[in-house]
């Protein structure tokens, strides 16, 4: 099996191209994707697949989602992109009340094979409160939606392919700072199954669950902590719903300690969900209180200094670990 080095953006590009070649029902929908002005991910797709499969839309997230739903109901397999994920609230009605519930409410007579790419998540680029959020937590609360979030090129390509091939709606989250992160992937076709976590680093003393950009911060923290004799296991859930509970519980059984690190306000976050799950299903494994590393409950500041202060960082993870590993 041959491999190649690639970054996350290109891995997503490749996944789109390969899936569109593989399945003529795959169409992509979004703002300015024909010219690929934003992040360049959809470059070359118009040339190869034409206007019938690469649809530009107005700046109207609700229209993008609605269009995708209609297309899916007619038998297509749309991959809409919400370019700036912060504006997904415009499409909430379509996503949460229609896309999520259609298959259920029509007794399974319709399939809704939509993969909604939620783009440009994350703070740190000085883009202020409306262009910097990580909103994945909103969607795990909605039955009918799957939520995936890749942190590496391998996972990004494999998960996007699996999402596109899934007959149910999937939200595929993308982070601003992950695009340029590189890694190796096979040149052959592969998928990463939805609902399966990945142990990114094995360790003995504490489990850190982190995804997306925070996963990389967790790995950096693990390297630092190792110097101080603390052995860290880093788990990337990759799918936030349905969560791979077993991998997390097994890890906590081994380490007895759990930290969940996420780049969003702590209240009502994914960390709260994972913490509660481990408390319910893995209490007897715990040797210390579960810790959450997350952002403050405030809008993301525009001031660069304050924004830096707001974003949970490697040091925060290290401090949390030291607090519970004695």
């Amino acid at each position: 099996m041959s491999e190649k080095t690639i970054n996350v953006s290109d891995a997503i590009h490749d996944a789109l191209v390969e899936e569109m070649r593989r399945d003529p029902s795959v169409v992509i929908v979004g703002e300015s994707i024909q010219r690929a002005t934003s992040f360049g991910i959809t470059r070359g797709l118009l040339t190869e697949f034409g206007y019938n499969r690469v649809w530009d839309t107005p700046i109207a997230e609700n229209a993008i989602a609605g269009l995708a739903l209609g297309a899916a109901l007619t038998g297509l397999r749309p991959v809409p992109i919400i370019m700036i994920g912060d504006f997904i609230p415009y499409a909430m009605e379509i996503i949460c009340n229609e896309i999520a519930k259609y298959r259920y409410m029509f007794g399974g007579n319709f399939k809704v094979p939509i993969t909604i790419r939620v783009g440009a998540q994350g703070a740190g680029a000085g883009l202020a409160a409306q262009h910097s959020q990580c909103l994945e937590a909103w969607f795990i609360h909605v039955p009918g939606l799957k939520v995936v979030y890749a942190s590496t090129p391998y996972d990004a390509k494999g998960l996007l392919k699996a999402s596109i091939r899934d007959d149910n709606p999937v939200l595929f989250f993308e982070h601003k700072f992950l695009g340029s992160i590189t890694g190796t992937i096979p040149t052959e076709d592969y998928t990463v199954p939805i609902g399966v976590a990945d142990v990114k680093r094995e360790g003995e003393d504490v489990t850190i669950v982190a995804w997306a950009f925070m996963m990389h911060k967790a790995l950096n923290a693990a390297t630092e902590l190792e110097k101080e004799g603390i052995s860290v296991e880093v788990i990337d859930p990759r799918t936030l719903y349905p969560l791979d509970k077993e991998t997390i519980l097994q890890s906590v059984k081994k380490t007895g300690r759990l930290i969940i690190a996420e780049e969003a306000p702590k209240t009502g976050g994914i960390g709260a969900e994972i913490s509660a799950m481990v408390n319910e299903e893995g209490f007897d494994s715990l040797d210390a209180p579960i810790m959450r590393v997350a952002a403050p409950h405030t809008p993301i500041p525009y001031s660069a200094a304050l924004e830096k202060l707001w974003i949970p960082n490697v040091k925060d993870i290290i401090n949390a670990a030291k607090k519970i590993v004695t």
């Binding site: 007895g256 210390a288 004695t326």
Partner: peptide, 11 residues
């Protein structure tokens, strides 16, 4: 206990 706040831990 040798844990935080004198909590008895697995160790």
């Amino acid at each position: 206990g040798t844990g935080p706040n004198g909590r008895i831990v697995r160790k």
